[in-house]
Simulated scan of single mutants.
Amino acid sequence: MKLATLRTATSTVAVRVDETAAVEIDGYTDVGALLANSDWRTIATSASGTRHTLDAIAPQDWAPVVPNPSKVVCVGLNYANHIREMGRELPEFPTLFAKYPEALIGANDEIALPAHAADHVDWEGELAIVLGAPARRVSGDEASAAIAGYAVLNDVTMRDYQYRSPEWFQGKTFENTTPFGPYLVTADEFTLGGELRTSVDNEVVQSTPTDDLVFDPKALVSYISQIFTLKPGDVIASGTPGGVGHARKPARYLAPGNVLSTSIEGLGVQRNAVVTEQ
């Protein structure tokens, strides 16, 4: 099953995305609100609200899958090929940092670059893990059962701000820079191993199977839940593969006028124009 959040004339609404239409899930303004109900799967499956033909939905009507999660936890250095290109050893434990919800944008929204931080902007295509149940100190099957599903995310990064200090956070959470969506695919319908692909102006810059992860989704949910409680709708950005612009010789960065495209087999495609913040 696919779930998404659609923008309407006055608000947003959670929808089930079928083969030809998005069906409103009455009573739920977004996927995060839906996942907060422990019976979310049954509610979504039986929804019969207003139907929106997919062909009639404007690209910018797709909001971030979960517009306002309580937490966005990001994982650094989690693909073996990216760790090698950055000249590091495989980690014993996940590297974690955070992102604020204000950074999230829809799958086809513009990435707005502020003038003071527009010169070293990098792409990081990622698999997003979305929680569908509370997770506190879980392991094994409990960790897997807490995952609602998966979506595409790009952790667009201001490298100059990232490396101003040993802590990466300040380069990772600029507002209106992180596309998330277009939809969530429930865990029972997604298998790791498909290609994660990032392109800049139709040139492929990242192409890696999603099972190259050092720490898989179950391991990440388990590890993070030892630190704090993960709530329904929380998001884990599981790390980026090799091919980032900062590691290239010479380095390459995004600029206004570029179009960034990110896709994962089975999870859809994002297309985001890069613009100057107004």
Rank of each mutant, 00 (worst) to 15 (best):
H52F: 12
H52D: 00
H52K: 00
H52G: 06
H52A: 03
T53P: 04
T53G: 12
L54P: 03
L54T: 04
L54M: 03
D55E: 14
D55Q: 12
D55F: 02
A56F: 00
A56P: 00
I57A: 01
I57H: 02
A58M: 08
A58E: 13
A58F: 03
A58C: 06
P59F: 04
P59K: 07
P59R: 10
P59L: 06
P59Q: 07
W62G: 00
W62V: 05
W62K: 02
A63K: 05
A63V: 09
P64Y: 03
P64C: 00
V65A: 10
V65E: 04
V65P: 09
V65D: 07
V66Y: 02
V66M: 01
P67I: 09
P67T: 10
N68C: 14
N68D: 13
P69E: 09
P69I: 05
P69F: 04
P69M: 01
P69L: 01
S70Y: 08
S70C: 02
S70I: 07
K71R: 14
K71W: 08
K71G: 07
K71H: 08
K71Y: 03
V72Y: 01
V72F: 08
V72P: 09
V72L: 12
V73W: 06
C74M: 06
C74F: 07
V75G: 05
V75T: 08
V75W: 01
V75R: 06
L77F: 11
L77I: 11
N78D: 04
Y79G: 01
A80K: 10
A80R: 12
N81R: 10
N81Q: 10
N81T: 13
I83A: 02
I83M: 08
R84D: 15
E85M: 09
E85V: 01
M86P: 05
M86H: 11
M86V: 12
M86N: 11
G87Q: 05
G87A: 02
R88V: 11
R88Q: 15
R88W: 12
E89I: 08
E89Y: 09
L90D: 06
L90C: 02
P91I: 04
P91V: 03
E92Y: 06
F93A: 13
F93R: 13
F93V: 15
T95R: 11
L96T: 02
L96D: 05
A98K: 02
K99D: 03
K99M: 08
Y100I: 10
Y100S: 14
Y100F: 14
Y100N: 12
P101K: 04
P101E: 06
P101I: 04
E102D: 15
E102V: 15
E102S: 15
A103K: 00
A103Y: 04
L104M: 09
I105F: 03
I105V: 09
G106R: 06
G106V: 08
G106E: 06
G106N: 03
G106P: 10
A107G: 06
A107N: 01
N108D: 11
N108P: 05
N108Q: 13
D109C: 10
D109G: 13
D109Y: 05
E110D: 15
E110P: 06
I111L: 07
I111T: 07
A112F: 08
A112Y: 11
L113P: 06
L113W: 00
L113Y: 09
H116G: 10
H116C: 10
A117C: 05
D119Y: 05
D119M: 14
D119N: 13
H120S: 15
H120D: 11
H120F: 15
H120K: 14
V121D: 08
V121L: 07
V121W: 07
